[in-house]
Amino acid sequence: MHHYPFKQTIKGHDTMLLSVDRISKTYPGSRPVLQNVSITLGQGDTLALTGESGSGKSTLLNLVAALDEFDEGEITLGTKTYSMLNDVGRAELRRTQVALVFQQFNLIPSLTVKQNLSFHARLGNKNGPEWIAHLTERLGLEALVSRYPEQLSGGQQQRVAIGRALALKPALLLADEPTGNLDDTASNAVMTLMLDLVRETGAALLLVTHSNAIAAQLDHRIHLAGGRIT
């Protein structure tokens, strides 16, 4: 029987979606970024991950997104066990079950708004034109569909990024400071919209934020400090 230094379990829905079990991560030449971090998340749960800069929030998010590899522990999403997945399996996971929203938006600059919106869903063979049309309308992007990302404001770009992520109807949405680049008004509008749509899709949400106000809008909240949950 392992002794867990700290284990925070989120209990919402009955079915567990995500299990992060005693994860540790150290980058070469630096102190440990994450140490024995464990969390669980049920389907449709929303969890805010807060903490100072350098506390390991984004690293945890990258590990859950299967973008990076952990040194110790295990992550399970649905039936997928991360340590058993190779590069192709991890890519498939990102293509079909996990969606990401970044602070820097990270839209594909060479594609139009319309193409960006449907891109991830089409990659994951989950293209639903009606759903995307609905998202476009909800996100207020109808007039912007033929524009390129660089022709949009920050708030507009983030709405496209949220639309792209939700077009996939992912099981888990990961958002890393999604409103960090926006002013308060835009930030509130975008957050409200995102939470509404997340609830509409039934996806679980793991959101990294500095903002207490935003964290308060989510079902649950955990705090990271020095790579540990406190």
Partner: peptide, 16 residues
């Protein structure tokens, strides 16, 4: 990199 990284994040392998 900024053009390729999002596509990678969306589920295309680095090999591809």
């Amino acid at each position: 990199l900024p053009q390729v990284a999002p596509v990678w994040a969306l589920g295309i392998t680095r090999k591809q």
